[in-house]
Design a binder for these strands. Sequence first.
DNA 1: ATTGTGGCCTGCCCGC
DNA 2: TGCGGGCAGGCCACAA
Length: 259
Amino acid sequence: MPELLEVETYRRQASAVVGRRIVAVEAPDAWYVKRGDRSVLEPALVGQRVSGIDRVGKLLLLDLEDGTRLGLRFGMTGRLLVDGSASIDRLQYSSTRTDPAWIRFSLFFDDGGDLRMLDPRRLGGVELDPDVARLGPDALTITASELAAALGRSRAPLKARLLDQSRIAGIGNLLADEILFAAALDPARPASSLTPSELGALHQSILTTLPTMMSTGGSHTGPLRTAAALGALCPLDGTPLLRRQIAGRTTWSCPLHQR
DNA sequence: ATTGTGGCCTGCCCGC
DNA sequence: TGCGGGCAGGCCACAA
Protein backbone atom coordinates (compact mmCIF):
# COMPACT_ATOMS: atom_id res chain seq x y z
CA MET A 1 0.00 0.00 0.00
CA PRO A 2 0.72 3.31 0.30
CA GLU A 3 2.65 3.39 3.53
CA LEU A 4 2.20 5.78 6.42
CA LEU A 5 3.41 8.80 4.45
CA GLU A 6 0.92 8.34 1.65
CA VAL A 7 -1.94 7.71 4.08
CA GLU A 8 -0.96 10.85 5.97
CA THR A 9 -1.31 12.71 2.69
CA TYR A 10 -4.72 11.09 2.24
CA ARG A 11 -5.68 12.19 5.75
CA ARG A 12 -4.89 15.82 5.00
CA GLN A 13 -6.78 15.59 1.76
CA ALA A 14 -9.77 13.91 3.40
CA SER A 15 -10.04 16.68 5.99
CA ALA A 16 -11.90 18.57 3.27
CA VAL A 17 -14.98 16.44 3.93
CA VAL A 18 -15.16 17.18 7.66
CA GLY A 19 -18.52 18.80 8.40
CA ARG A 20 -20.23 17.37 5.37
CA ARG A 21 -23.21 15.06 5.58
CA ILE A 22 -23.22 11.67 3.82
CA VAL A 23 -26.18 11.30 1.50
CA ALA A 24 -25.30 8.09 -0.35
CA VAL A 25 -22.90 5.15 -0.34
CA GLU A 26 -21.72 3.13 -3.29
CA ALA A 27 -20.02 -0.20 -2.64
CA PRO A 28 -20.14 -2.08 -5.92
CA ASP A 29 -17.53 -4.61 -4.84
CA ALA A 30 -18.77 -6.78 -1.96
CA TRP A 31 -15.25 -8.12 -1.45
CA TYR A 32 -14.09 -4.64 -0.58
CA VAL A 33 -16.41 -4.29 2.41
CA LYS A 34 -14.96 -6.21 5.32
CA ARG A 35 -17.17 -7.62 8.08
CA GLY A 36 -20.41 -6.85 6.32
CA ASP A 37 -21.67 -5.45 3.08
CA ARG A 38 -23.48 -2.45 1.71
CA SER A 39 -26.66 -3.30 3.63
CA VAL A 40 -24.72 -2.77 6.86
CA LEU A 41 -22.77 0.27 5.72
CA GLU A 42 -25.60 2.25 4.24
CA PRO A 43 -27.79 2.61 7.36
CA ALA A 44 -24.70 3.23 9.50
CA LEU A 45 -23.39 6.03 7.31
CA VAL A 46 -26.15 7.77 5.39
CA GLY A 47 -27.51 10.88 7.07
CA GLN A 48 -24.49 11.35 9.27
CA ARG A 49 -22.06 14.20 9.31
CA VAL A 50 -18.30 13.55 9.20
CA SER A 51 -16.94 14.93 12.47
CA GLY A 52 -13.25 14.26 11.95
CA ILE A 53 -10.51 12.41 10.12
CA ASP A 54 -7.87 10.38 11.88
CA ARG A 55 -5.02 8.08 10.97
CA VAL A 56 -3.30 5.27 12.82
CA GLY A 57 -0.43 3.79 10.86
CA LYS A 58 -1.78 2.98 7.42
CA LEU A 59 -5.40 3.02 8.54
CA LEU A 60 -7.47 6.08 7.67
CA LEU A 61 -10.48 6.75 9.90
CA LEU A 62 -13.57 8.80 9.20
CA ASP A 63 -15.26 9.78 12.45
CA LEU A 64 -19.00 10.23 12.29
CA GLU A 65 -21.13 12.31 14.59
CA ASP A 66 -22.65 9.33 16.44
CA GLY A 67 -19.24 7.86 17.27
CA THR A 68 -19.14 5.35 14.45
CA ARG A 69 -15.83 5.17 12.64
CA LEU A 70 -15.27 4.06 9.11
CA GLY A 71 -11.83 2.56 8.48
CA LEU A 72 -10.23 2.78 5.04
CA ARG A 73 -7.30 0.52 4.16
CA PHE A 74 -5.53 1.13 0.89
CA GLY A 75 -3.65 -2.10 0.42
CA MET A 76 -0.75 -1.74 -1.97
CA THR A 77 -2.47 0.07 -4.78
CA GLY A 78 -5.31 2.04 -3.23
CA ARG A 79 -5.72 5.74 -3.97
CA LEU A 80 -8.03 8.35 -2.57
CA LEU A 81 -10.10 10.76 -4.61
CA VAL A 82 -11.85 13.68 -2.96
CA ASP A 83 -14.22 15.73 -5.10
CA GLY A 84 -12.76 14.07 -8.14
CA SER A 85 -9.12 14.84 -7.61
CA ALA A 86 -6.22 12.91 -6.12
CA SER A 87 -3.51 14.15 -3.78
CA ILE A 88 -1.26 11.38 -5.04
CA ASP A 89 -1.65 10.56 -8.68
CA ARG A 90 1.25 8.23 -8.98
CA LEU A 91 1.89 5.20 -6.79
CA GLN A 92 4.84 2.88 -7.25
CA TYR A 93 3.65 -0.44 -8.66
CA SER A 94 0.22 0.90 -9.33
CA SER A 95 -1.19 2.32 -12.48
CA THR A 96 -1.22 5.97 -13.40
CA ARG A 97 -4.54 5.44 -15.13
CA THR A 98 -7.85 6.12 -13.46
CA ASP A 99 -10.09 3.37 -14.75
CA PRO A 100 -13.65 3.87 -13.42
CA ALA A 101 -13.88 0.10 -12.94
CA TRP A 102 -11.33 0.43 -10.16
CA ILE A 103 -13.59 2.54 -8.00
CA ARG A 104 -14.34 0.16 -5.15
CA PHE A 105 -16.09 2.48 -2.73
CA SER A 106 -17.69 5.94 -2.77
CA LEU A 107 -19.31 8.31 -0.33
CA PHE A 108 -21.45 11.15 -1.63
CA PHE A 109 -22.02 14.31 0.38
CA ASP A 110 -24.75 16.88 0.76
CA ASP A 111 -22.68 19.56 -0.96
CA GLY A 112 -22.39 17.53 -4.14
CA GLY A 113 -18.85 16.35 -3.44
CA ASP A 114 -17.62 12.82 -2.99
CA LEU A 115 -14.88 10.65 -1.54
CA ARG A 116 -13.82 7.60 -3.53
CA MET A 117 -11.35 4.78 -3.23
CA LEU A 118 -9.62 3.55 -6.37
CA ASP A 119 -7.88 0.21 -6.05
CA PRO A 120 -6.90 -1.85 -9.08
CA ARG A 121 -5.70 -4.86 -7.10
CA ARG A 122 -8.49 -4.84 -4.52
CA LEU A 123 -6.07 -5.45 -1.67
CA GLY A 124 -7.54 -2.65 0.41
CA GLY A 125 -10.97 -2.42 1.95
CA VAL A 126 -13.40 -0.53 4.14
CA GLU A 127 -14.54 -1.61 7.57
CA LEU A 128 -17.02 -0.24 10.07
CA ASP A 129 -15.49 0.34 13.50
CA PRO A 130 -12.17 -1.38 12.85
CA ASP A 131 -10.23 -2.63 15.86
CA VAL A 132 -7.65 0.13 16.27
CA ALA A 133 -6.34 -1.48 19.47
CA ARG A 134 -4.67 -4.13 17.35
CA LEU A 135 -2.25 -1.54 16.03
CA GLY A 136 0.94 -0.48 17.79
CA PRO A 137 1.96 3.15 18.36
CA ASP A 138 2.11 5.27 15.23
CA ALA A 139 5.60 5.39 13.77
CA LEU A 140 5.49 9.14 13.17
CA THR A 141 5.32 9.88 16.90
CA ILE A 142 6.78 6.75 18.51
CA THR A 143 8.86 7.28 21.66
CA ALA A 144 12.17 5.60 22.45
CA SER A 145 10.62 3.42 25.13
CA GLU A 146 7.76 2.41 22.85
CA LEU A 147 10.31 1.42 20.24
CA ALA A 148 12.28 -0.64 22.74
CA ALA A 149 9.08 -2.37 23.81
CA ALA A 150 8.16 -3.04 20.19
CA LEU A 151 11.45 -4.82 19.55
CA GLY A 152 11.29 -6.63 22.86
CA ARG A 153 13.33 -9.77 23.29
CA SER A 154 12.47 -11.01 19.85
CA ARG A 155 14.98 -13.01 17.84
CA ALA A 156 13.05 -12.22 14.67
CA PRO A 157 14.85 -10.04 12.11
CA LEU A 158 14.81 -6.38 13.04
CA LYS A 159 13.01 -5.56 9.82
CA ALA A 160 10.25 -8.08 10.52
CA ARG A 161 9.51 -6.30 13.78
CA LEU A 162 9.44 -2.89 12.13
CA LEU A 163 6.90 -4.23 9.63
CA ASP A 164 4.68 -5.79 12.29
CA GLN A 165 1.74 -3.38 12.48
CA SER A 166 0.72 -4.66 15.90
CA ARG A 167 4.11 -3.51 17.25
CA ILE A 168 4.59 -0.30 15.30
CA ALA A 169 1.93 1.08 13.00
CA GLY A 170 2.71 2.58 9.64
CA ILE A 171 6.05 1.23 8.44
CA GLY A 172 5.96 -0.68 5.16
CA ASN A 173 8.63 -2.39 3.14
CA LEU A 174 10.21 0.67 1.56
CA LEU A 175 10.21 2.79 4.70
CA ALA A 176 11.69 -0.06 6.73
CA ASP A 177 14.62 -0.30 4.33
CA GLU A 178 15.23 3.45 4.36
CA ILE A 179 15.02 3.66 8.15
CA LEU A 180 17.53 0.84 8.63
CA PHE A 181 19.79 2.30 5.97
CA ALA A 182 19.88 5.66 7.72
CA ALA A 183 20.39 3.96 11.09
CA ALA A 184 23.28 1.87 9.68
CA LEU A 185 21.65 -1.32 10.93
CA ASP A 186 21.51 -4.70 9.20
CA PRO A 187 17.84 -5.59 8.56
CA ALA A 188 18.59 -9.22 9.41
CA ARG A 189 19.90 -8.48 12.89
CA PRO A 190 17.86 -10.13 15.63
CA ALA A 191 15.52 -7.44 16.95
CA SER A 192 16.69 -7.93 20.52
CA SER A 193 20.39 -7.62 19.69
CA LEU A 194 20.53 -3.83 19.53
CA THR A 195 22.72 -1.98 21.99
CA PRO A 196 21.22 1.08 23.71
CA SER A 197 23.06 3.38 21.34
CA GLU A 198 21.87 1.43 18.30
CA LEU A 199 18.35 1.60 19.63
CA GLY A 200 18.77 5.35 19.95
CA ALA A 201 20.05 5.57 16.38
CA LEU A 202 17.07 3.58 15.15
CA HIS A 203 14.66 5.84 17.00
CA GLN A 204 16.30 8.95 15.60
CA SER A 205 16.25 7.42 12.15
CA ILE A 206 12.50 6.79 12.34
CA LEU A 207 11.82 10.32 13.55
CA THR A 208 13.94 11.97 10.87
CA THR A 209 13.45 9.62 7.92
CA LEU A 210 9.65 9.84 7.91
CA PRO A 211 9.30 13.64 7.82
CA THR A 212 12.17 13.94 5.37
CA MET A 213 10.65 11.48 2.93
CA MET A 214 7.26 13.02 3.45
CA SER A 215 8.67 16.31 2.23
CA THR A 216 10.50 14.78 -0.72
CA GLY A 217 7.42 13.09 -2.05
CA GLY A 218 6.72 9.75 -0.37
CA SER A 219 7.86 6.27 0.48
CA HIS A 220 9.64 5.60 -2.79
CA THR A 221 11.81 8.74 -2.75
CA GLY A 222 14.47 7.61 -0.28
CA PRO A 223 18.19 7.52 -1.09
CA LEU A 224 18.39 3.74 -0.83
CA ARG A 225 15.47 3.09 -3.13
CA THR A 226 16.81 5.64 -5.59
CA ALA A 227 20.25 4.05 -5.56
CA ALA A 228 18.83 0.55 -5.96
CA ALA A 229 16.99 1.67 -9.06
CA LEU A 230 19.99 3.43 -10.56
CA GLY A 231 22.86 0.97 -10.25
CA ALA A 232 22.58 -0.65 -6.87
CA LEU A 233 25.58 1.06 -5.32
CA CYS A 234 25.44 2.43 -1.80
CA PRO A 235 25.11 6.23 -2.00
CA LEU A 236 27.29 6.58 1.09
CA ASP A 237 30.24 4.33 0.32
CA GLY A 238 29.77 2.99 -3.19
CA THR A 239 29.53 -0.64 -2.09
CA PRO A 240 27.30 -2.86 -4.24
CA LEU A 241 23.96 -3.07 -2.46
CA LEU A 242 22.62 -6.36 -1.19
CA ARG A 243 19.22 -7.58 -2.32
CA ARG A 244 17.67 -10.25 -0.12
CA GLN A 245 14.36 -11.62 1.05
CA ILE A 246 13.81 -10.78 4.70
CA ALA A 247 10.48 -11.26 6.41
CA GLY A 248 9.27 -12.44 3.03
CA ARG A 249 9.94 -9.09 1.45
CA THR A 250 12.49 -7.81 -1.00
CA THR A 251 15.10 -6.05 1.10
CA TRP A 252 17.85 -3.70 0.00
CA SER A 253 20.78 -2.86 2.25
CA CYS A 254 24.45 -1.92 2.26
CA PRO A 255 26.59 -4.84 3.44
CA LEU A 256 29.40 -2.48 4.44
CA HIS A 257 27.88 0.19 6.63
CA GLN A 258 24.71 -1.53 7.83
CA ARG A 259 25.88 -3.82 10.60
C1' DA B 1 3.48 -17.19 21.90
C1' DT B 2 6.31 -16.23 18.24
C1' DT B 3 7.70 -16.68 13.71
C1' DG B 4 7.53 -18.00 8.91
C1' DT B 5 4.86 -19.17 4.75
C1' DG B 6 1.39 -18.97 1.41
C1' DG B 7 -2.47 -16.89 -0.58
C1' DC B 8 -5.39 -13.24 -1.76
C1' DC B 9 -6.20 -10.11 -6.15
C1' DT B 10 -4.88 -7.73 -10.47
C1' DG B 11 -1.93 -4.74 -13.44
C1' DC B 12 2.33 -3.85 -15.53
C1' DC B 13 6.85 -4.57 -17.42
C1' DC B 14 10.30 -7.25 -19.46
C1' DG B 15 12.05 -10.54 -22.55
C1' DC B 16 11.21 -13.77 -26.09
C1' DT C 1 2.26 -7.35 -31.73
C1' DG C 2 1.35 -11.08 -28.48
C1' DC C 3 2.24 -13.83 -24.61
C1' DG C 4 4.07 -15.89 -20.41
C1' DG C 5 6.54 -15.15 -16.23
C1' DG C 6 7.78 -12.53 -12.54
C1' DC C 7 7.15 -8.75 -9.77
C1' DA C 8 4.65 -5.68 -6.51
C1' DG C 9 4.58 -0.23 -1.04
C1' DG C 10 -0.22 -5.03 2.55
C1' DC C 11 -2.59 -8.04 5.29
C1' DC C 12 -4.59 -12.29 7.06
C1' DA C 13 -5.12 -17.21 8.12
C1' DC C 14 -2.65 -20.94 9.15
C1' DA C 15 1.02 -24.12 10.71
C1' DA C 16 5.14 -25.46 13.20
